[in-house]
Design a protein around this nucleic acid. Structure first.
Length: 875
RNA sequence: GCCCGAGUGGCGGAAUUGGUAGACGCAGCGGACUCAAAAUCCGCCGCCCUUAAAAGCGUGUCGGUUCGACUCCGACCUCGGGCACCA
């Protein structure tokens, strides 16, 4: 055994040992693990080329779960793969003139190499890259199944359009309402695309996230519930007035959905989206309105932009009729109403809706109060707006429906609407169908052929996969597939005439919606096979909180579609979910003359902080001139604020890196990266090594521990050890790994306090064996080597599968307890009592304490005793 | 704008969920060892008033519930994540 801890040598030896065992290859029904399977999976990384500390934290968590569950006796499987399609590869292509396929595969090789020194327990035999045809052919295959089942369908979608580069922009490529490369304001444009009908599953997705997913964090469940957004309300039809009938050249009615049917008599205007057929028809006759509709087309499609923009509207001059009074109501075009949501129209009730109130006020529209406050907050609505106006109350000025409470009014109005054929009760969801078409090259080709005669025809199953050519280089002016004759040219599978291939590719969320099922059977000649039935559901899924809604909702939906097609048996893919917080880092940029931002890597920057650690300024190393501060954000390639683990591992070793990212803070919380305190963790591992080295002979030759014969001092040390163990096991199970590291540090402190006593050897032997096994999932290399060197492996087997230590009840028991004495809730003293003392004796002891007596200067009203904790005397 | 989180010493954080606020570590200060430095080891370390002890004040802000609040309730401030084409 070496005297000095040498992480590089230790880690090489441990990894060699695991390689020789092929330790992480997992198989179904492995008889070595009678407790059954445990599938732990981390969200697969995008191969950006740089493995950063955020990845490290994520996959260390994954590895700790793997090792802890394997120590607990489970057949654990943990795979790894690559979310290999997507925008960054196209951006790299534009920048570096290199084909996305080449760039992506080189990055995968780089990142895999960067994983190696960390000692992660991945079963690499299950590796997947989503850009491989052997994977994405099943995206295409399932898409065709969905098309057949009506889950996939075609309709128009609204996208960000860059009028200079003539290309569709992703939301990320829109910066302050302008195209990121051209710098010109973006416009909305309608184009056709494919949708998946996730809304058909809205109710099941909602019910299960509410009631079944108990292993998920409450905040994620709430976010999904709110995202699905079920609301019960009424559909109301406002028949076209003669002027509208004339302009749109048809009979009909404007349909709206409302949760406040009780306020229908207060509707004083209707607001419709700029793309609504009535708006378009009215615009053809009215140049000013047409200009306004045009103006609404400016700007991006992001909800955050729409919600914060100034609310604007213009009258169409056309009318619809109130379903009960028959009075005409003017129709307005409003920029805050969206065609994609509901019916693209809302009824404006300014008296009882704050947004409608503002709109009416600004446009001098009438405000008619039709609800009276139940609590007496108001009788009549008048300016300014107060919150109670939107509360439920009693209907007034509502004809035959006056004098009703909210629910009674809604019921009566809905019934009346239904009998006239002008509406009904309806449940509406905020959730919208999932648009999967992307006008981009680097993704799964949508398996459709466009024929002039037969229209959009699905590619026959036997012709799958539709292979993406890998040698194209995008240049920022649209999808290069559109110019690639080899890809475009094909024949119609129905009529045999020459046809064109669809060039849109699928959203990359499709790739990540089912990869965790393919890991179970990566070589299957079908989408999934019986091995998937063995491993699914994922027992522990781990990933960033930023995926709380979209990815996790799509994956749940996709699983249900596969279930309904008989491909899998589970209803839900992820039994337990752990959402780890992100590592954040300061970011810095400079703007060029076009307003385009260049983001600096940390290594390119010299930072200055004030004494509180707040960044005050920074300069670029290249020219010594200041750069702008972009705040503290999640580590990501797009902001270049990534910290790579290479140098850290070289300096301290992988075990320090692993233990430090776990020790740095609670794993479910985001934290800014700093390695300032990494030294402490490294010193701990060094001290642990030295301790084992110094006492190696006592430990290996110690007789078995006889608890009853321990002296008072050693008994206390053993109590401390087992208390720490109990806490660590509890914290493992609730994923508080930061305090597991603390617990192992305390164990070492306890052992160090006992080492001087000659009769301590059996306790050292027990203590070190507990410490090593407790620390092992977090720092597996150093604990493995010490485990072998100190002879524990001969007795308890390889540390990979050695049983978890269990706290000894006799060690946890104490002869005496120290209790806190409070007077009126303030700490005033302490008393030490025998463990079995009764309540009256304890109270008497507390009152006898002289510090306590000083504060008991009034009659005692009450004495509260919390067993084992404290006594509170209320005077 | 809407939805979801977080805010505790100089810093990262702990407090088994209403019962001793500051565990464990970093930084800092003092000491031992050393010719010296590094490494290592020992001690101190929320604020305030003090020679000391004791008291008082302290968990973003303001208010409430309770014998007792970092923890529960209400309002607000700041920061982070998401908002459907970044992944």
């Amino acid at each position: 055994m070496d005297e000095i801890y040498d992480p590089a040598a230790v880690e090489a030896a441990a990894q060699q040992h695991w390689r020789a065992l092929d330790a992480y290859r997992s198989k179904e029904h492995d008889p070595r693990f009678p407790k059954g399977k445990f599938y732990v999976c981390s969200m697969l990384p995008y191969p950006s080329g740089k493995l950063h500390m955020g990845h490290m934290r994520n996959y260390t968590l994954n590895d700790v779960v793997y090792r802890f569950m394997r120590s607990s006796g489970y057949n654990v499987m943990t795979p790894m793969g690559w979310d290999a399609f997507g925008l960054p590869a196209e951006n790299a292509a534009i920048d570096k003139r290199i084909a996305p396929a080449k760039w992506t595969r080189a990055n995968i090789a780089d990142m895999k190499a960067q994983f190696a020194p960390m000692g992660f327990a991945f079963d690499w035999s299950r590796e997947i890259a989503t850009c491989d045809p052997s994977y994405y052919r099943w995206n295409q295959w399932l898409f065709l199944k969905m098309l057949k089942g009506g889950i996939a369908y075609r309709k128009t979608q609204i996208v960000n359009w860059d009028p200079v580069d003539n290309t569709v922009l992703a939301n990320e490529q829109v910066v302050d309402g302008r195209g990121w490369r051209s710098g010109v304001p973006v416009e909305k444009r309608e184009i056709p695309g494919y949708y998946l009908a996730i809304t058909r599953y809205a109710e099941e997705l909602l019910q299960q996230v509410k009631n079944d997913l108990e292993g998920w964090p409450a905040q994620v469940r709430t976010m999904q519930e709110n995202w699905i957004g079920r609301s019960e309300g009424c559909e109301i039809h406002f028949p076209y007035a003669p002027d509208t009938r004339e302009v749109v050249e048809s009979d009909g009615a404007l349909k709206v959905f409302t949760t406040r049917a009780d306020t229908v008599f207060g509707a004083t205007f209707m607001a419709i989206a700029a793309e609504h057929p009535i708006a378009l028809a009215a615009g053809r006759l009215n140049p000013r309105l047409s200009a306004f509709i045009d103006e609404c087309r400016h700007g991006a499609v992001m909800e955050a932009d729409l919600a914060t923009q100034e609310k604007k509207g213009m009258a169409t001059g056309l009318h619809v009729l109130h379903p009960f009074t028959g009075k005409p109501i003017e129709v307005w075009v409003a920029n805050y109403v969206l065609m994609g949501y509901g019916e693209g129209a809302v009824m404006g009730v300014p008296a009882h809706d704050e947004r409608d109130f503002e709109f009416a006020h600004k446009n001098r529209l009438p405000i008619v109060g039709v609800v009276k406050s139940k609590t007496g907050a108001y009788d009549q609505v008048r300016e300014p707006w107060i919150a109670p106006y939107s509360e439920y109350g009693i209907t007034v000025n509502s004809g035959e429906f006056s004098g009703l409470e909210f629910q009674a009014a809604v019921d009566a109005i809905a019934a009346a609407l239904q009998s006239r054929g002008l509406g009904c009760k309806r449940i509406q969801y905020r959730l919208r169908d999932w648009g999967i078409s992307r006008q981009r090259y680097w993704g799964t080709p949508i398996p459709i052929i466009h024929c002039e005669v037969c229209g959009a025809v699905p590619v026959p199953e036997e012709d799958l996969p539709v292979v993406l050519p890998e040698d194209l280089v995008p240049d920022g002016t649209g999808n290069p597939l559109n110019k690639d004759e080899r890809f475009l040219a094909c024949t119609c599978p129905v009529c045999g005439k020459p046809a064109r291939r669809e060039t849109d590719t699928m959203d990359t969320f499709v790739d990540s919606s089912w990869y965790y099922m393919r890991y179970c059977c990566p070589d299957a000649p079908v989408m999934v096979d019986e091995r998937t039935d063995y491993w699914m559901p994922v027992d522990q899924y781990i990933g960033g909180i930023e995926h709380a809604v979209l990815h996790l909702l799509y994956a749940r939906f996709w699983t249900k579609v596969m279930r309904d097609l008989g491909l899998v048996k589970v209803n839900e893919p992820f039994k337990q979910l752990f959402t780890q917080g992100m590592l954040l880092a300061h970011c810095y940029y400079r703007e060029d003359t076009n307003g385009k931002k260049r983001w600096f890597y940390p290594a390119e920057i010299e930072q200055q902080f004030d004494e509180r650690g707040t960044p005050i300024s920074a300069v670029a190393r290249e020219d010594g001139k200041p750069v702008s501060y972009g705040g503290i954000e999640k580590m990501s390639k797009s902001k270049n604020n990534v910290v790579e683990p290479g140098a850290f591992i070289e300096r301290f070793g992988a075990d320090t890196a692993r233990a430090f990212v776990m020790f740095a803070g609670p794993p479910d919380q985001s934290a800014p990266w700093s390695d300032a305190s990494a030294k402490g963790v490294h010193q701990f591992l060094k001290r642990l090594w030295s301790f084992c080295y110094d006492h190696r002979e006592r430990i290996t030759s110690a007789p078995a521990l006889v608890a009853a014969s321990l002296g008072g001092g050693l008994k206390k040390v053993r109590h401390e050890l087992h208390t720490c163990l109990q806490q660590a096991l509890f914290d493992y199970q609730r994923t508080h790994y930061n305090t597991v590291v603390s617990a192992t540090m305390k164990m070492l402190i306890a052992l160090e306090s006992a080492k001087g006593q000659p009769e301590a050897a059996p306790l050292l032997r027990e203590g070190v064996s507990i410490l090593l096994r407790t620390l092992y999932p977090i720092a597996p290399h150093v604990t493995h080597v010490l485990w072998v060197q100190l002879g524990y492996a001969r007795e308890l087997g390889d540390l990979l599968d050695a049983p978890l230590p269990a706290p000894a009840q006799d060690a946890l028991r104490q002869d005496e307890l120290e209790l806190v004495v409070q007077v009126n809730g303030k700490l005033r003293g302490r008393v030490t009592v025998p463990a079995g003392a009764n309540e009256d004796a304890i109270k008497a002891a507390a009152l006898a304490d002289e510090h306590v007596r000083k504060f008991v200067d009034k009659p005692i009203r009450k004495v509260i005793y919390v067993p084992g904790k404290l006594i509170n005397i209320v005077v």
